[in-house]
């Protein structure tokens, strides 16, 4: 067992974890942050995408022990404390960017990284950004539309993201 200490959604966590536990399983089962989903566990579907030290990663391809000392952001940290949805979450709902919702947390975290770097992406940039995230329900179009609806909005990015 390994000791780890990390910051998840601005809250410190520490505990012990078996070396082979993936970051996604640790978040889900040890910390109870079950918004991070496992869709393939071989690094293709993107459902487990979380942000580690500012960069999006596949939660199934990283060990929890590797997140020692890291700052981790997950879907649970997007909305404000009072429950107010993040602009992008709101846009997903308004534009019907989710159906079953299983891929949604990974989509959101991938797009958060995109919008932090590229506040006004083109449609192609949005499509490329999510090309590593599979969705069987939407056909992606409504997700792309949701992103484009919040780009370049005053106050919308990148400060809020």
């Amino acid at each position: 067992m390994q000791e780890i200490t990390l910051l998840v959604n601005n809250r410190p966590y520490s505990g012990t974890v078996e070396a082979r536990t993936t970051l996604a399983d640790f978040l889900r089962h040890s910390l109870g942050l079950k918004g991070t989903h496992l869709g393939c566990e071989h690094g293709v579907c993107g459902a487990c995408t979380v942000i580690v030290d500012g960069a999006s990663v596949r939660g199934c391809l990283m060990l929890a022990v590797q997140a020692e000392g890291a700052i981790v952001e997950t879907v649970e940290g997007l909305a404000a404390e009072d429950g107010t949805l993040h602009l992008l979450q709101e846009a997903f709902s308004r534009e019907h960017g989710l159906q079953c919702g299983f891929c949604t947390p990974g989509m959101l975290m991938t797009l958060i990284e995109l919008l932090r770097e590229t506040p006004s992406p083109t449609e192609m940039e949005v499509r490329e950004a999510i090309s590593g995230n599979l969705c069987r329900c939407t056909g992606y179009q409504s997700i792309v539309r949701a992103v484009l609806s919040v780009t370049g909005r005053p106050g919308g990015a990148p400060g809020d993201l």
Partner: peptide, 8 residues
């Protein structure tokens, strides 16, 4: 790959 895999 994809952005998430290039990050690592």
């Amino acid at each position: 790959g994809h952005r998430q895999t290039r990050n690592r």
